[in-house]
């Protein structure tokens, strides 16, 4: 959580300094939820994170260099400058690379799980995340229904952070609570207060375990508030102050730190030391990537096919 927060704050400052091409999208306030998912998954599981899942990506095993390289467009990154920011992954390792189209990753994870079933693998879980707004897509509906029909071990984490870009929930859906949809799909539903790390670890952990044990798709609806703009270009002035001051507006990271201190599981000095070493780790990653080459149009293949012989040479 802390590493995700420090890394993203650094990326935001690089963005403000004009050192990043494209946008920067933070998971600020969503780290407890996302990290809980990443920590509940195992090697060999499938994970398709979305925009606000830096914490989950790290917990699932992403090296921070991959994040920094993708944001900064290093030729050495997993996407080699072909894709930026949150659009990254290593599908061969079960870490799928999202496309922008909201809702699209859910059915892709379903397919990954169908393949694992064909191969006779047992105890595998596939997880993906979406926002409140993304639940309004047709893709969301098709995929969750498919997962239910096939009884797949899917965990679908819905981060209800109250806004889809600027659109509040009452313009996005009309049901009382998104978790009520679970019964309509024939999947198990869970609710969690995502400002509370303990609750996230507990509820998300349970959902992952139930999927693993063969209880079919699990839908977790988490309530929280987006503590940043949609992206760093957005001041989010449309979020009412009263909401920020309410329980939902609490910062899960600050709350988790206070809990650790209260329980004396960490001393203030140790926390400061940990934060300092994480900041140094992030600074070093950025310094490393800043020395790396950018992609070179002259050495690009400019071929989209895995079978170059089938490329339409007239288009080359």
């Amino acid at each position: 959580m802390l590493l995700a927060r420090v890394l993203e704050e650094k990326l935001a400052s690089l963005y403000r300094a004009g050192k990043i091409n494209g946008g920067v999208f933070l998971g600020k306030g969503q780290e407890a939820l996302s990290a809980s998912l990443g920590m509940s998954l195992r090697k060999g599981d499938i994970f398709a994170p979305l925009i606000r899942d830096q914490a989950g990506r790290l917990a699932f095993g992403e090296d921070i260099l991959e994040a920094v390289r993708t944001y900064m467009g290093s030729a050495l990154g997993p996407m080699r400058g072909r894709e930026g920011n949150v659009h990254r992954g290593r599908p061969k390792d079960g870490y799928y690379a999202m496309i922008s189209h909201l809702g699209a990753m859910i059915s892709v994870v379903c397919g990954g799980l169908i393949a694992r079933r064909f191969k006779g693998e047992k105890g595998v879980v596939g997880a993906t995340c979406i926002g409140d707004g993304g639940t309004s897509t047709g893709a969301f509906h098709e995929a969750l229904n498919l997962a239910a029909v096939e009884k797949l071990p899917l965990v679908l984490l819905i981060a209800n952070n109250q806004f889809a870009y600027s659109t509040p929930n009452d313009r996005e859906f009309a049901c009382h609570d998104l978790v009520d949809r679970a019964i309509g799909y024939g999947v198990e539903g869970h609710k969690v207060d995502a400002t509370d790390l303990d609750a996230c670890l507990d509820v998300v952990g349970r959902a992952v375990a139930r999927a693993r044990e063969g209880h079919g798709p699990q839908m977790v609806v988490a309530s929280l508030l987006r503590l940043s703009g949609h992206g760093e270009h957005d001041d989010a002035s449309y979020i009412p102050e009263a909401l920020k001051a309410a329980h939902l507006g609490q910062d899960c990271l600050k709350t988790a730190e206070c809990t650790l201190l209260d329980r004396k599981w960490i001393s203030p000095e140790e926390l400061a030391e940990l934060t300092g070493s994480i900041q140094q780790q992030v600074e070093e990653a950025i310094a490393t990537v800043q020395r790396e080459p950018a992609p070179d149009p002259a050495t690009e293949t400019w071929c989209a096919l895995a079978t170059p012989g089938l490329d339409d040479t007239f288009c080359a």
Binding site: I46, P91, K92, Y96, A104, M105, I106, S107, V108, V109, C110, G111, G112, L113, I114, A115, R116, F118, K119, A139, E142, A143, L146
Partner: peptide
């Protein structure tokens, strides 16, 4: 979408 996921896994 599911076919894409299955293809990622080698099907």
């Amino acid at each position: 979408g599911s076919a894409i996921g299955a293809a990622i896994e080698g099907m």
